[in-house]
Amino acid sequence: MSFDPSLYIQYGPALLNGFLYTVLSLALANPLAILVGLVIALLQSLSLPPLRWACRSYIHFIRGTPLLIQLFLLYYCGPTVGVRLDALTAGVLGLGANGGAYFAEIFRAGFESIPKGQVEAARMLGLTPWQVLTRVKLPQMLVLITPPSVNQVIIIVKETAILSILTVPELTKAAIRMVGETSAIIEPYVALAAAFWLLVEATSRLGRRLERRVARHL
């Protein structure tokens, strides 16, 4: 078996197209997951028993079942209850909903790390709950939640590969297709691995810069 770089010239445009879909998927899924996680963590902190229970159930469902099955449920079983989504939308929503549960747990730990007294001091000075969140809690939480959040973002970056099974034309799909059409195995998968490694490396570099930034006061 030999390595044939000329395949990359032939499949360059297809791979690039797939790469752009991968970037699009992760660029949509990550903010969505963070948003879902933040909302769940906030709802949980309201200490309303039914809401708490709903949030816990959601997290347990997501963590207790494989992502692939959740995506299948959304994409293939969705239409039976009238939810008809194209593959990319279903994929992004699924990744966001899934990642959100994990982010929720990271944020919950963050919220619980803020001493209650700091919030009481803020309330006595007249800060609104929103101001307490954005000026007192979140900035301090960042130190604690940035490393696990970067981790979670990296996981989601790599999980976009699963969207190939939903027929999203992202990079993994393009590579698999290349395998099918050329019978070459090494070239497509090396390109695939290299591309993901690049994305993850970029993410973790950004993460380290973010970590330094949020820890300035320490």
């Binding site: 007294g117 001091a121 309330r123």
Partner: peptide, 16 residues
């Protein structure tokens, strides 16, 4: 509450 100011045992300054 705006008429009141409070000083706590644990100071409760915002460390950031």
């Amino acid at each position: 509450r705006r008429h009141l100011g409070m000083v706590f045992q644990q100071f409760n300054l915002w460390p950031h």
